[in-house]
């Protein structure tokens, strides 16, 4: 057990699984880096943000594959390899690049098992970074998890901390279905205590990061941290929040969400993805259908506007959910009846 960053936790998960199972391989653009360079160095980058650093050095060219800039072919190759005996972890770098290879994910990997009558197994993990906050603008900042969640056959994981990242990634690698594993790029330097050993966190099981009587907040990825910040402030003002981190959007732990809404009667959903057909919309529909009678106030969503992610810092800050916006939404659901009476 020691303090590890989100980056180290992911690196460690990959390392441990590659040691444990020789079928686990890694591929992606510059996951090692330096090949074909004039200095003759390998492992020069270890991924654009250094997440896979050292893995080429430990596992060599039979296990770690730098790819040309050809997402359609290597993501598809990973799917094909997964269906035929390997357990590839393919890195897509920025999730926005899924535009270049969606067919291989959506029409190929995701569909094999069902289309082939349950005869295929596709133990594929696609890692990608997502999210805004780095001024990376419209093509490098999207939170595309609803896109994957929409596709039957894919599992979608959004870790909210270093501890979560390691356990969920190991689970993803051992899972026999295609898993999209999405890392918020602003979190790589976040640190917390993480066990040195391998451990797994099951999919489809939400984590309650805190419990309170008044409002249920559902949040994903980095938004979990912001929701907890808001809940801290609200607690000092006498408002108790339950914060749910679903961990995976597919499968989704519907029961925990419904149970908590039954207890608190109020729901705020914090979702960094574009608002139309996103997780906030999906969960709102679920709760409206299954827990309508428990609701004491309309559901509130803390979500970005329906625009691309802007570049300038001021606009990006306006765009993103933050703790203050979450706090305001919670107060709004708390005050629902009060304002009505007034």
């Amino acid at each position: 057990m020691s303090k590890k960053s989100f980056r180290q936790a992911i690196n460690e998960a990959l390392r441990l699984e590659m040691r444990r199972d020789p079928r686990v391989i890694l591929m992606g653009e510059d996951v090692a880096g330096g090949q074909g360079g004039s200095a003759g160095t390998v492992d020069a980058w270890g991924g654009v943000l250094g997440v896979t650093k050292g893995l080429y050095t430990e596992f060599g060219p039979e296990r770690v594959f730098d790819t040309p800039i050809t997402e359609a072919s290597y993501i598809g190759a990973a799917a094909g390899a997964a269906a035929t005996g390997l357990r590839p972890v393919a890195e897509l770098m920025f999730v926005d690049f899924v535009g270049c290879c969606l067919d291989q994910i959506m029409n190929q990997a995701a569909k094999f098992r069902y289309m082939f009558g349950g005869k295929a197994r596709t133990p594929l993990v696609i890692r990608a970074m997502f999210g805004a906050g780095f001024n990376a603008a419209a093509q490098h900042s999207q939170a595309l998890y609803p896109l994957f969640t929409h596709i039957p056959g894919l599992k979608v994981v959004i870790p909210s901390s270093p501890y979560e990242a390691k356990g969920l990634l190991i689970e993803a690698i051992r899972d026999d279905d295609p898993v999209i594993f999405l890392e918020h790029k602003v979190m790589y330097d976040d640190e917390e205590e993480v066990p040195d050993e391998a451990y797994t966190i099951p999919f489809g099981e939400a984590n309650l990061t805190r419990e309170g009587d008044d409002v249920t907040i559902v949040a994903f990825g980095r938004m979990v941290k912001l929701a907890n910040e808001a809940a801290d402030r609200l607690e000092r003002q006498g408002i108790g929040c339950t914060v749910i981190d679903p961990r995976t959007t597919s499968p989704l732990d519907r029961d925990t969400i419904l149970d908590c809404v039954a207890d608190t009667g109020r729901l705020v959903i914090v979702d960094e993805s574009s608002p139309r057909c996103n997780m906030a919309a999906d969960i709102s529909a679920l709760v409206a259908e299954e827990a309508f009678d428990a609701l004491k106030a309309p559901i509130r969503r803390v979500i970005p506007p329906h625009t691309p992610v802007p570049f300038a810092s001021v606009l990006e800050a306006l765009y993103l959910p933050d703790a203050a916006k979450i706090e305001a939404a919670v107060k709004a659901v708390m005050n629902h009846n009060v304002t009505e009476a007034a």
Binding site: Y163, G167, P195, E197, A198, Y199, T200, I201, L208, E211
Partner: peptide, 17 residues
């Protein structure tokens, strides 16, 4: 509390526990 349960779960998730 939830925290105590979480600590036990964290232990139980370790490979081999």
């Amino acid at each position: 509390g939830r925290k105590m349960a979480d600590d036990v779960l964290r232990y139980k998730r370790l490979d081999g526990a």
